[in-house]
Design a protein around this nucleic acid. Structure first.
Length: 463
RNA sequence: GUGGAUGUAGCUCAGACGGUUAGAGCACCGGAUUGUGAUUCCGGGGGUCGCGGGUUCGAAUCCCGUCUUCCACCCCA
């Protein structure tokens, strides 16, 4: 009998327990931050009806969608009626349209779930991955000031995560389109194509962009020069950002440009109130984002200590989220963190070590005859709310300690005949290599203090 | 979906011109007398050289095909 090689599909991330714990901590921190900013949880099914999911015909998204089908339908040769979601925004649109009359607006939801994309596998590209989305959806209106709240969430979150410096880059699609129009690039398709290239500026560099614009779009050198000067602009502070907007409006005139600039000014003003320091924010006029539904503010965040990772979080404003599902006008602003990629890349850089085990204490079994006392000890610790694993087989102590070491369990409770006679328990701290004795009755309380201390030292956020 | 590269132990790799039983480091397992891990010492298991075919007295090594993975494009978290 030939064995089937055990493997996952390419583009799936599967983790060992201690890595999984580290990943879970990341998700926990994201969740806690989202909740602290008043976002409400929802989940939607992995599969949606095809007609619901694929509201836009053809194109790039459809090529990346996985379809699902019952065996019966497949054998009957019917078209698949189900598809796996490729993001969380489309399901949100459906959700909001469906429950519109039961939801309170502005509706602030967070959603942390996996999505699926049929991509060719590549480093750091996944076919199944977590997105951690927050969106605020308004009814009829959603003032621009909401656009400043999402960066505030991101500022808080990445500060807490502690991956070093980061920069929230902000731009505005109206401003972009206004500038392009003022430079004589026609609205619609031509602007879309130019923006797609502009978006690559930070990755490919100005020379590449200049050549592309000259060859593919046959723009004049004067226009290209002005465009490059514009999209190459970055602000260094809020004051500088306001100055850049003023300069821009003085040099070029267009209604969209003026509107975009006004929106950005509003966002900048509110960011100050939200307590986001301008060391972590910058206007980047090359940020264009997914060219389909964003209409105003767009965001992209990078880790300044690890720029090679690229964008770790992005999003923006859309005018009408659910136009395919309802006649109600539902404008919104949202943003998404690709947690799987973020985790994977930070781990590649060696910034994510395996986490300590969720098991806080291992009760060793020194001798077969001590099974009863050991299990009773474990039970008492659990009753005190401590996560305990008890060894059920007596083995050499060295082996049990090695097990604890590998499993990442910090404390080992030793209850041998000596301890039993004295009414104490020995506790070994695997990390510090220290050991102490404590009266059996006081063990739970002592361990709670030790665990709290260890957690504080490690900077692990409260769950 | 298009183009390019890769493929030797679990991992990272070495194996010049084809020539006898294919190697290293790390990892893994076991041991170094009594109840102490991660360090040290000793020993051990593990490879149809991606797969199929061809050339040859002889192929990990040369040729063809195929699959896989990786990289770029597209798109994006």
């Amino acid at each position: 009998m030939s064995l089937v090689q055990p493997r996952t599909l390419p583009g799936a991330l599967e983790l060992l327990p201690r890595e999984q714990i580290a990943f879970q901590r990341l998700l926990d921190t994201i969740r806690a931050t989202y909740e602290r900013f008043g976002f409400l949880p929802i989940e939607t099914p992995v599969m949606e009806l095809t007609e619901v999911l694929l509201t836009k015909e053809g194109g790039e998204t459809e090529r990346q969608v996985y379809f699902a089908q019952s065996t019966g339908d497949r054998e009957a040769g019917r078209e698949p009626e189900l598809a796996l979601r490729f993001d969380l925004t489309v399901p949100l649109a459906r959700y909001v349209a469906q429950y519109e009359h039961q939801l309170a607006f502005p509706f602030r939801r967070y959603q942390i779930q996996r999505v699926y994309r049929g991509e060719r596998a590549q480093r750091g590209r996944f076919r199944e991955f977590y997105q951690c989305d927050i969106d605020i959806v308004g009814k009829d209106e959603l003032p621009v000031r909401f656009d400043a709240e999402l960066p505030a969430v991101i500022y808080s979150l990445f500060t807490e995560l502690g991956f070093g410096g980061f920069r929230i880059q902000i731009n505005n699609r109206k401003l972009l389109r206004g500038v392009l129009a003022a430079l004589g690039i026609a609205e619609g398709e031509p602007q879309t194509l130019v923006l797609r290239e502009v978006d690559k500026l930070d990755k490919r560099g100005p020379e590449y962009l200049r050549d592309t614009l000259r060859e593919r779009f046959s723009l004049g050198d004067d226009i290209i020069g002005r465009l490059l000067a514009f999209v190459g602009t970055r602000s260094t502070s809020y004051a500088h950002a306001r100055g850049l907007l003023a300069d821009l409006e003085r040099d070029l005139a267009h209604p969209l440009l003026a509107q975009g600039a006004a929106e950005l000014r509003e966002v900048l003003d509110r960011l100050v109130d939200f307590g986001v320091p301008d060391s972590h924010v910058c206007l980047n006029f090359a940020i264009a984002r997914g060219l389909d539904y964003y209409t105003g503010t767009v965001y992209e965040t990078i880790l300044t200590d690890h720029p090679e990772i690229g964008s770790v979080c992005s999003g923006g404003r859309y005018d009408d989220l659910a136009s395919h599902y309802t006649k109600s006008r539902l404008p919104g602003v949202g943003l998404s963190i690709g947690a799987t990629r973020l985790f994977w890349q930070l781990r590649e850089l060696g910034l994510y070590k395996d986490a300590e085990s969720t098991v806080q204490v291992l009760v060793a079994l020194m001798d077969e005859s001590l099974l009863g006392p050991a299990l009773q000890l474990a039970t008492r610790l659990r009753a005190a709310g401590i996560a305990v694993e008890a060894q059920l087989e007596a083995a050499k102590l060295a082996k049990q300690l090695k097990y604890a070491d590998r499993a990442g369990i910090r404390f080992v409770a030793l209850l041998g005949s000596d301890e039993l006679a004295k009414g104490v328990v020995s506790v070994k701290d695997m990390q510090r290599g220290t050991q102490f004795e404590v009266a059996a009755d006081e063990l739970a309380a002592t361990l709670e203090v030790e665990i709290a201390q260890a957690r504080a030292m490690a900077g692990v956020p409260r769950a």
